[in-house]
Amino acid sequence: MPVITSEMRALIHLDTVPVTYEIEKGAIRKFARAIGDANPIYHDDDAARGAGYRGIVAPPTFLRSLVPGPERTPFPEPFDRILDGGSQYTFDEPLIAGDRVTVVSKLVELFEKQGRLGTMLFKVREIRYQNQHGRLAATQRTTTITY
């Protein structure tokens, strides 16, 4: 029996409530330490400026810490087990400490597959990260699998 309902399909292309983050030096350093990346541009202002940035820059996947806001209508999730399927990123402008980034996500694709784990529901979301200049800094297309 298909798990995808018309109620789920009606949520495709609806934006989440926008949420704005200030990009903090401490958060960047903590993220860089967590991923084990000692590149000085993530830790030291002078090193970052020497590399052509305005200040400490965030590692590319720091975007993962900028969690989108709530969905306006919660997705009626039929499963409780979750796996990350993968991500596709485009990086248009670096995120620099002090930047303000507004994050909006939307469901863009919904499909199901039969696999080793039974019925698996795939949700593809597109997350847009816009900086304080109104320019798109990055986009992430991310696939969540539940089963």
Binding site: D37, T61, R64, D84, G85, S87, Y89
Partner: peptide, 10 residues
């Protein structure tokens, strides 16, 4: 998975 993405980016 996202930590593995971070490793590839590094």
């Amino acid at each position: 998975g996202a930590l593995k993405s971070a490793f590839i980016a590094q």
